[in-house]
Design a protein around this nucleic acid. Structure first.
Lengths: 194, 194
DNA sequence: GTCATTTTTGACGATGGAGTCAAGAATGAA
DNA sequence: TTCATTCTTGACTCCATCGTCAAAAATGAC
């Protein structure tokens, strides 16, 4: 192999992720990425072809970090503690940074300019994986018996609600409100009669 | 008053709303608005000054329509029926159009390029109004006694959840999933022991 | 009908991103 | 070392939007 890549690819993708996360996919330009990564525009075109490909690579990083954090939350033994922990993980993810960067998945999903089918599919995959993890956790007998909904129903409600938290974070920007609201939902999802 | 406006302002704003709704605030350009309204760019600058002002005017239309529809849903007497009706109104709002336009509030809130403080405030106002209406409805004794959460808690959960539905609509694009998930949440918010 | 005022129109220069490309630099293979 | 291949660099053209402006058109007031 001759003519080897001269920039640190994982550092560049981390910088690109930072940029996409702060600005959103559509609002991020190739010059933005060149500035953020310190790699010239031409090199980026040469290495990845287009912005979307860079996004997909950066999104892999994001998904890894996020799902790993959720995985930890799902080890809780009590249904209430588990749900609260999942929501706190999601809230921490979206309120990190200054100013807070929000939730990359949500930002990308709602992004004005219709993203390509590839990006759209990638979002569906993340949501699908998250749902599956949640459903598995909710299916554990000790958890399931405490819930007012069946595992698939609970998983769908939880995933949808975390997306709602991401939007509310953008609008109200008050992480206490998010925590309190998540706590309210948790209370109504955990059976008070078990 | 001399030199009177030559275009139909309310028709133009309706067309602008359509455009903002489909494309999002950031992705909509002044040429887009000129094309959609049939009013030349220069006239739009003269009449409104900038894109954001046009958006704020169009958003008023949107809010009126949406809150009026919610108001109707809130006349239901049964808590379960009321919640389902509210969610169906929200789902209908976001799945209308072909292709579906999604939820304008959510799109704007999450829009990559940080909108101006004016726009941001406008979103907060809409959410605040919606919350207030919901809280009032949930406070009616016949409704309150059926709910597992206090009226303010229920209102916060419902508002947040509708934002989540808007995001899920973008990702899964399946309005049946949205209805089913809303129905699940409704079930856990309505006390099964009253 | 005349006039003052506002709107409309079309065009202007400035800005910035998109995508491409040829020349130069770097590097592993032989 | 030499060479073939790949990466990097800087510059180029194309294109669309932005914001403005002066001239033309429209219209109510008198």
């Amino acid at each position: 192999m001759v003519g080897v890549r001269q920039f640190d690819e994982s550092a560049a993708l981390a910088a690109a992720l930072e940029t996409f996360w702060s600005q959103g996919l559509a609002a991020t330009t190739m010059p933005d990425l060149a500035r953020a990564t310190g790699v010239q525009r031409g090199s980026l075109y040469n290495a990845y072809g287009d912005k979307e490909t860079i996004f997909l690579r950066a999104f892999d990083l994001y998904e890894d970090r996020f799902l790993k954090a959720v995985e930890v939350s799902l080890t809780q033994d009590d249904a209430g503690a588990l749900l609260r922990s999942v929501f706190e993980t999601a809230i921490a993810n979206m309120t990190a940074g200054s100013p807070p960067r929000g939730c990359l998945t949500t930002k990308t999903a709602v992004d004005g300019s219709t993203a390509s089918a590839l990006v759209h599919d990638r979002l569906r995959v993340l949501v699908e994986r998250l749902s599956t993890m949640l459903e598995a956790a909710c299916s554990r007998p000790s958890i399931a018996q405490q819930l007012t909904l069946s595992p698939p129903e609970a998983a769908a409600v939880i995933v949808t609600f975390t997306r709602g938290l991401a939007v509310m974070e953008r609008i109200v920007g008050d992480s206490d409100f998010l925590s309190r609201t998540a706590s309210s939902l948790t209370r109504s999802l955990v059976d008070r009669h078990s």
